[in-house]
Design a protein around this nucleic acid. Structure first.
Length: 849
RNA sequence: GGGCGCUUAGCUCAGUUGGUUCAGAGCACUUCCCUUACAAGGAAGGGGUCGGCGGUUCGAGUCCGCCAGCGCCCA
């Protein structure tokens, strides 16, 4: 035990010791009922760390440590989410390159130095750079989490681009395919023109954009005049396939079934009825284009309209007009916009429309919501492409019902988060689009047979054997084919796409638990006990994981979801790199230590956003120092520091009423902290424990300190109670302040505190009446106040303290009289029962200066 | 436009089934104290009509309704 306890150096010492001792190593000899398994979120390894990373992981770690002390064998793996677009983007910026699959592989490739323009490089070189950078990033992340004391088993790690994840992702996909849950379709899908990939409904966000409403005149084919529509996307007029109005709209009801002519392009389109048309919006009748927005897709599908595509995957108008634009005038008009971006085409079309007289009045500025890919910065377009989909209840109601039931079956912390799941599932409007036109991801593990003309036959999907996974259809040949047949008539071609990153992330329970690869482990860990995660990815990560487990295992992936809040900056804005308000955790760990930072994180309630507040970290540091000092005091008392001196051995010695009162209070704390932890409310457990500690040191320790120094039974009683209380409190704090508590524990106990039993009331000796301690604390406080108000030293003798209080209070006080007089330096304690039940009041007469 | 959550001391936040224990904690602020566990400390103190309005109730920070502001999710 050091002379002067300090927090410095604890992280390095105990971190290394935990590693060497395997304190957090998973023992797979235990049965499922004895295991507590955690589906740790694999953080996106983007190279930058911020306090959000330490916030939620600390919260989960506190629960993990509690469960471990309760005797559960904790299965606590860690993954790194490195596949997908964030890594690609980071590699592009970091190395100044861009992936171009048409560039051949360069065996001796070295990243460019200081390129002016992004250098195009081949797919394999690009992937190599991704792997290289993520490895560095992952080391930085592991260092951070180790430093923070997160008690994961570092022998259980995975990366989402790693071989195991590719194998599991591909196997799960092939199972989905075999059961008909995965299917391909040529259909309109949301498309990011910057990244040139399809995106899923779950990855959308609305952003307000300034636009203009253009009023356009469509001439009725019967010569009965014009119909006016309003649109913010006049450039889409070439792709117009119909006009729609609400079926109950009397203004347009007579026109349903008739046709109009599209301005400039002179195609004839029908006027139709659909309930989604809003009579109050604009003129109450809208043009349907293929495709201007998602409602167009609905109209197109439900009204069985033709497709007239004009938008290309690069965000520019296709070079050739759709076939329906047959007239010379139409083709000439289209030539004006071919190859232009949406904005450029809009400007040109507006000029043409104005010139033709079809534009009525001036465009009116308007603000409207536009759909964006959450990681993109140009509006999404809708393009018809062949993509892979996974059934998720978006299109079939029985499955949706089953998934809604799963949401109910799942235990949510906090409960109201379940509503977000329900809302999301109920709002699904299509299946899950899982294919992405990207490179750094898990390849879709299929090939297509080519016909005699060398064209892919998409209905002839060639699949690999499961035991050959993972495969890359770009370099592996399908069963029954030779590599030489690639791209040849009668040969095969690989699917060029990768899966959505969520298609891998949705399998983290299967990946971590060894699905189909380690049946013994799987049986001991799956379904998992808890999925900790943040609330904004309920619609993506949580939901998709439920979908995969439901389809594959007909079960939930975990029993419970523990949803964490966000760290907000002090102005209550979400921290984000783009806002430049990110607080990096490494500096905080340097300045205050891991336990102090953990304390701040553990105070954040489940599901509740927390504004970053450095002053709370200081409080955590003070708390940790206080614990060390309190331990030093208790263990510095005679006979207390013999190693292995267990509280149980000292139990019989607790005889004094005030000492037994402390144990009563401690018993309540143990019940309360345990109850809170069982409900995943680590923050409440911490709050209760912390409150107890300060009361313990401020009042109980001060009251019994003098007696504890003395020999004899009375002194032994105090020392025993102090040790029992210290032992329990160290263990109560251990989940929150693992370094501090391990340090103090090591001063007198064998083994790691993190494998010590969670303290419970049953281990305490018979307790007394808590009123004794409460009464003594109360009077001691009054005496201190009298001294403080008189501006005297706390040591100042009190010649007489006169307490007037109800008889029960006085009775309790009497039981602690000796300690009270010692602590308050009270010469004479006079007690008077109050007749009216009032009190206590304390008159303190201080000795002259 | 719909759903969910939040609004309590200058700041950050607790207040679990409505009742002397519910108006609290910490930070900040003021005063005092180097008392032998702790000065990177300790003791004490001032500070809030619990967002607004209305309702249920013997009694509402707590339940209900409406409104306002903030945040998130969705349309």
């Amino acid at each position: 035990m050091p002379e002067r306890p300090t927090l410095e150096g604890l992280e390095a010492r105990w971190g290394a010791w935990w590693d060497a001792e395997g304190v957090y190593r998973f023992d797979r000899g235990r049965t499922r009922a004895e295991v507590f398994s955690i589906d740790t979120p694999p953080p996106t390894v983007s190279g930058s760390l911020h306090v959000g990373h330490v916030f939620s992981y600390t919260q989960t770690d506190c629960v993990a440590r509690y469960q471990r002390m309760r005797g559960r064998e904790v299965f606590y793996p860690m993954g790194w989410d490195d596949n997908g677009l964030p890594t690609e983007r980071r590699v592009q910026n970091y190395f100044g390159v861009r992936c171009d699959p048409s560039v051949p592989h360069d065996e001796n490739f070295a990243p460019p130095t200081d390129p002016a323009e992004p250098v195009p490089i081949g797919r394999r070189n690009f992937i190599d750079l991704c792997l290289q950078l993520t490895e560095t990033d992952e080391q930085a992340f592991e260092d951070l989490y180790r430093r923070l004391g997160v008690s994961v088993d570092w022998g259980l790690t995975y990366t989402t681009i790693g071989e195991r994840c590719r194998r599991v992702s591909q196997r799960a996909f092939l199972r989905n395919l075999a059961r008909g849950e995965a299917y391909q379709a040529e259909a309109p899908c949301l498309w990011d023109v910057t990244f040139r990939t399809a995106v899923a409904q779950a990855e959308l966000e609305d952003r307000p954009r300034q636009g203009a409403l253009h009023r356009l005149a469509f001439a009725r084919s019967d010569g009965g005049g014009d119909i006016l529509i309003e649109t913010t996307r006049p450039e889409m007029v070439a792709a117009c396939v119909a006009l729609v109005a609400h079926p109950d709209d009397d203004r347009y009801r007579p026109l349903f079934g008739s046709t109009v002519r599209v301005p400039l392009f002179d195609t004839e389109v029908p006027v139709l009825a659909h309930a989604l048309a809003e009579p109050g919006k604009g003129t109450g009748i809208a043009m349907v284009c293929t495709f201007g927005d998602t409602v167009d897709v609905t109209w197109w599908r439900e009204l069985e309209l033709p497709v007239r595509p004009i938008m290309g995957p690069d965000g520019r108008m296709l070079a050739e007009p759709p076939d329906a634009l047959a007239s010379a005038g139409a083709r000439a008009a289209y030539a004006e916009i071919a190859g232009l971006t949406a904005n450029g085409a809009r400007r040109r079309i507006v000029e043409l429309l104005a010139h033709s007289g079809a534009l009525v009045g001036e465009p009116q500025p308007t603000s409207h919501a536009v759909k964006f890919f959450e990681k993109g910065d140009r509006p999404l377009e809708i393009i018809t492409t062949r993509q892979w989909y996974l059934r998720n209840g978006g299109r079939d109601l029985p499955l949706r019902k089953e998934l809604l039931d799963r949401g109910t079956e799942l235990a949510w912390v906090p409960e109201f988060m379940g509503t977000r799941y329900t809302n999301w599932v109920e709002g699904l409007n299509g299946d899950w689009l899982v294919s992405r036109q990207r490179w750094f991801g898990v390849p879709i593990p299929v090939w297509y047979a080519l016909d005699d003309a060398g064209r892919p036959q998409y209905d002839r999907v060639l699949v690999p054997a499961e035991d050959s996974l993972p495969i890359d259809p770009a370099s592996d040949a399908p069963p029954g084919y030779e590599e030489s047949q690639r791209g040849k008539p009668g040969g095969f071609t690989g699917d060029p796409d990768v899966m959505d990153t969520w298609a891998t992330s949705s399998l983290t329970p299967q990946i971590a638990c060894g699905w189909e690869e380690d049946p013994d482990l799987f049986a001991r860990t799956f379904p998992m006990d808890v999925r900790p995660q943040a609330h904004e990815i309920i619609r993506t990560w949580l939901f998709s994981t439920v979908v995969r487990a439901h389809l594959e295992h007909d079960s939930l992936p975990w029993r419970r979801a523990a949803i964490s809040g966000w760290v907000l900056d002090p102005d209550r804005k979400k921290m984000s790199k783009s806002k430049g308000n990110v607080v990096t955790p490494v500096g905080l760990l340097d300045d205050y230590g891991a336990d102090a930072v953990r304390y701040w994180a553990a105070r954040g309630r489940p599901g509740t956003d927390t504004a970053f507040d450095e002053s709370q970290i200081k409080v955590g540091r003070r708390l940790a120092i206080k614990i060390l000092n309190a331990a030093r005091f208790v263990l510095g008392l005679a006979g207390a520091t013999d190693r292995g001196d267990t509280p149980a051995a000292a139990a019989g010695a607790v005889t004094e009423p005030i000492d037994r009162a402390l144990l009563a209070k401690l018993g309540d704390l143990l019940d309360g902290a345990t109850e809170a932890f069982e409900a995943f409310d680590y923050a409440r457990a911490l709050e209760r424990t912390e409150r107890f500690l300060w009361d313990f040191t401020d009042n109980y320790v001060e009251l019994v300190k003098n007696r504890a120094y003395r020999d004899g039974d009375a002194g032994a009683s105090a020392r025993a109670a102090l040790q029992i209380a210290l032992s329990a409190q160290l263990r109560l704090f251990a989940p929150f302040l693992p370094f501090t508590c391990e340090e103090a524990w090591s001063w007198w106990q064998q083994g790691s505190i993190h494998r010590a039993p969670w303290p419970q009331r049953a281990e305490l000796p018979d307790a007394g009446d808590p009123a004794v301690l409460a009464a003594a604390s109360e009077v001691l406080g009054r005496v201190r106040r009298a001294k403080s108000e008189a501006r005297r030293k706390l040591r100042t003798p009190v010649t007489q303290a006169h307490v007037t209080a109800p008889p029960e209070f006085l009775e309790a006080l009497t039981a602690a009289q000796g300690d009270l007089c010692d602590a308050g330096n009270i010469v004479d304690l006079a007690l008077s029962p109050s007749t009216d039940g009032e009190g206590p009041t304390v008159e303190s007469r201080l000795a002259a200066e």
